[in-house]
């Protein structure tokens, strides 16, 4: 009898969390399959890609959770980051070519990536103040859809603007750190990749700490849970929203900068990252920051599996089919979305 009573809740708990259970099993199978087919190299590749998508998706989730903005110009923040890193790094590289200096060579890429982050933060402030603040003052009616369309417009302007000013050509670097690849468990990983992964993890960790442990971070979470309540305890909504948007933009820029060796900088480089970031938040649950981190890795698994077992060119088709299935089972994502506004929409 005692056994019975403990078994029942387990079954019903599985039932309640069916999407999570299904996806966990599915991910595990993919993981094993990738390991068998591709070995350590593909597993590391997946983890590194997952970190990348997680960093981007966290920004999207944050902007949606706090501001209710479905951000379609997130890829352009990535693009700006890539450009800024390119234009700060290449002169430094040239200088170091004629004046070799080990210490500076090691630190210059970090400087470029940091600069990109700062540029992204500033861009975020400008966009928020120039576009969303006026809309907020004018009307909050139909906010989600209006905000979404505005981000579509922003994306259009930024990518075409980049094309206008800088032209359509690709600007890339072969690598940030001119050192040999590192061997881990029989697989060779370039230092650039490892550091890009480290940067994404550190950035997510820093954000986590900020949201959980600091006064302003707590205020950001407060705004995402109850806007009116937040104002009533003295939180400046305008400030929090601008800050949030700026943070998300900075994170995407850092991402674009640290992946410059992989993606290069060109006007429409944001398309792929945007697609995957959206993929992650749709699957995990809009506005769910923790879900976005886990989702990043699940999507990377899917992506690697498609590349390994089908073909690279099918990576936009098969995952979409999976996504459709997921959304049919769980219309608001695997981990759900309790963000205000989504339900009312």
């Amino acid at each position: 009898m005692a056994k019975n009573s403990s078994a029942r809740p387990l079954m019903s708990r599985i039932k309640d969390n069916l999407p999570i259970v299904v996806i966990s099993i599915f991910s595990l199978i993919l993981f094993v399959a990738i390991y068998i087919e591709g070995g350590n190299a593909q597993i590391f590749n997946t983890i590194i890609t997952g970190g990348m998508w997680a960093l981007l998706a966290v920004g999207l989730a944050l902007v949606f959770g706090v501001m209710n903005i479905p951000h379609f110009a997130h890829g352009e923040s990535f693009m700006i980051g890539a450009y800024v890193a390119y234009f700060t790094f290449t002169p430094m590289q040239e200088y170091l070519y004629t004046n070799p200096n080990k210490f500076l060579s090691a630190i210059a890429p970090l400087g470029a990536i940091l600069t990109a982050g700062v540029a992204g933060a500033i861009l975020g402030i400008i966009i928020e103040q120039l576009i969303f603040a006026p809309l907020r003052r004018r009307t909050k009616k139909d906010w989600i859809m209006n905000a979404f369309l505005l981000t579509v417009g922003i994306s259009f302007v930024l990518s075409n603007g980049a094309n206008l000013v800088l032209g359509p050509n690709f600007r890339g670097i072969s690598r940030y750190w001119d050192v040999k690849a590192v061997e881990i468990g029989g697989a060779y990983m370039s230092v650039d990749r490892l550091i890009a992964f480290a940067i994404s993890m550190v950035t997510i960790g820093a954000l986590w700490f900020f949201l959980r442990r600091t006064r302003v971070g707590r205020a950001i979470r407060a705004v995402s849970q109850d806007e009116t309540g937040a104002q009533l305890v003295g939180i400046n909504l305008n400030f929090i929203q601008t800050l949030t948007f700026s943070l998300a933009t900075a994170m995407a820029s850092i991402s674009g900068a640290s992946l410059l060796f992989l993606f290069q900088a060109y006007p429409t480089v944001g398309g792929t990252p945007l697609y995957y970031a959206w993929y992650v938040v749709m699957m995990a649950g809009l506005g769910n920051v923790v879900g976005a981190i886990i989702g990043g890795f699940i999507v990377a698994l899917l992506q690697t599996a498609t590349q390994l077992f089908v073909a690279v060119s099918w990576t936009t088709v098969l995952p979409t089919v999976v996504m459709i299935l997921v959304l049919l089972i769980a219309p608001s994502g695997i981990f759900g979305s309790e963000v205000k506004g989504v339900q009312e929409q």
Partner: peptide, 13 residues
């Protein structure tokens, strides 16, 4: 300090 009828608590905290 305004305690509204909806309370406006931060329910996830």
């Amino acid at each position: 300090s305004y305690v509204s009828e909806k309370l406006n608590l931060f329910t996830g905290m």
